[in-house]
Each structure stands twice: as C-alpha cells, then as structure tokens.
Design a protein around this nucleic acid. Structure first.
Lengths: 109, 109
DNA sequence: GTTGTATATAACATAATAGTTATATAAAGA
DNA sequence: TCTTTATATAACTATTATGTTATATACAAC
C-alpha cells in the first residue's frame, strides 16, 4: 500500500491533481481543462490515486466528483518522519560514541 | 528536483536503501548483500538517490561509502504538509460557509 | 426512445525503469 | 608490475507507465 502511495506521488500530473483537489472536489472534465491531456489519461491517473487511497469519488448525475482523502497521505508522511527519526537517533548514537572516545581515549587524537 | 525526489522514493529497493543508510553509512557491497540484486543495480539506485539529493557519497580507499542526506527529504515532506494545509484551509472555509448558511438561511434546510 | 453529456475501458504506440551480464576504471597490496 | 577488491559504465532485455484514439456505458433531458 505504501508503495502504491509513493508510486502515485511520483507523477507530476498526479501531484497537480492532488493539489487541485486539496482546494475542493472536482469532476474529471474540470480536472482535464487545466492539464493539456486527454480525458482518458485523467481517468487513469484518478484510478491510480484511488488505488493508493489518496482520492475517493462520489456520484452526482453523470459526473463523478473526486475529493482528496487527506488521511491517505499519512502513511507516506509517517515513513519520511520515521527515516528522519532513525537517522537522528543514529546520529545521536554516533555523537555519544564520539564524546565517549574523546574522554576515554583523549591521547589517541 | 521535487520530482526526482518523489520518483526516487517510488521504488521499494531505494526506500530500503534509504532506511539502511539511516542507520549509518554503507558501501555499495554492504548494501548489495541484503538485497538479492546485482552490484550494478545497486550502483544505479544510488545514482538516482544522489541525483535526488537524498544521498551523498565519500571516498575511502576503493570503497565509496554513502550516507543519507536527511535534509534532502524536507522538500518532499513539505509538499505533503502543504497539501494537508491547503486541504484543511479549504475545509475550514467550507465549514465557515456552512455555518453561515445555517444562521443566515435557517429556513432553507 | 433518441440525443447529449460525463466518464470508463480497450487497444495500441512509445518511452522510461529496473534488472541482467560483460567490461572498464581505480586504488591496495603482494 | 601483477592481482585483488570495489565500484562504475555500457549494452541489452523485459516490464511498466503514460499517453493516444476509438468505443462502450450510464444517466439526463427532451
């Protein structure tokens, strides 16, 4: 699932769609206009975004307005935060280690 | 640049490499072992990660130990946060709008 | 029921990605 | 200098992604 999210985010058109949806729901044809690409292309991007849990769609007459599922982004954010934490932990560990070496073996420098 | 970062993050092997590097620097051959793929494949993943500004490499004898550049992730995180903010802003705007309609036109419900 | 509008799906072309093996380069060490 | 070790690059292959046009479906409106 995480993989689908990151893959979905890798395409600039899809990120633009997400940004547009963050401003409010939009139909396929509303989304199509600003991007210079065909309607089927938009539909497929939306499918990818839905499969990734980032977007959901409703039904209003013939239109199928999509809206952002902002919780869908949490897993990706959490992964990035986790990396950060892992890294700063190991950084602190290294720091502690260096501080230790300095006091224990000050003559080796 | 943002694009390169997200593209870099889209591949599970590259995310695993990042996770490994978050624990401390590692050489190409050290990275190769756990993943069941060839050395050239690792080298190319590292190239992608470097181009994305997520990893940097040094030189130690023949080895070229890579380390995480955690600031490199900030832009991606910021983009995700921005979406969240955009969304909650428009959500609040909608909320305010609905609250308004309720008081101004209470008879329309 | 026929027409118009919104969207989805199929079929296809092209380009990008990720992997492979073989080979080149660069530094260490005998 | 010859060998070994570590990594990079080239050439190639297979798969996946993204776009296209043409067509199907679903609902609305007349």
């Amino acid at each position: 699932m995480l993989d689908r999210k990151f893959v979905a985010l890798a395409d600039p058109t899809r990120r633009a769609i997400l940004a547009r949806l963050a401003l409010g729901e939009a139909t396929v044809s509303e989304l199509q206009r600003p991007f210079g690409i065909s309607q089927p292309a938009i539909s497929r991007h939306l499918k990818v975004l839905e499969a990734a849990g980032l977007v959901e769609g409703g039904r209003a007459a013939q239109a199928r307005p999509r809206r952002l599922k902002p919780e869908g982004l949490d897993a990706a954010r959490a992964w990035l935060d986790g990396l950060r934490t892992l890294w700063s932990d190991s950084f602190e560990a290294l720091d502690a280690f260096l501080a230790n070496s300095r006091t224990e073996g000050a003559d080796t420098r």
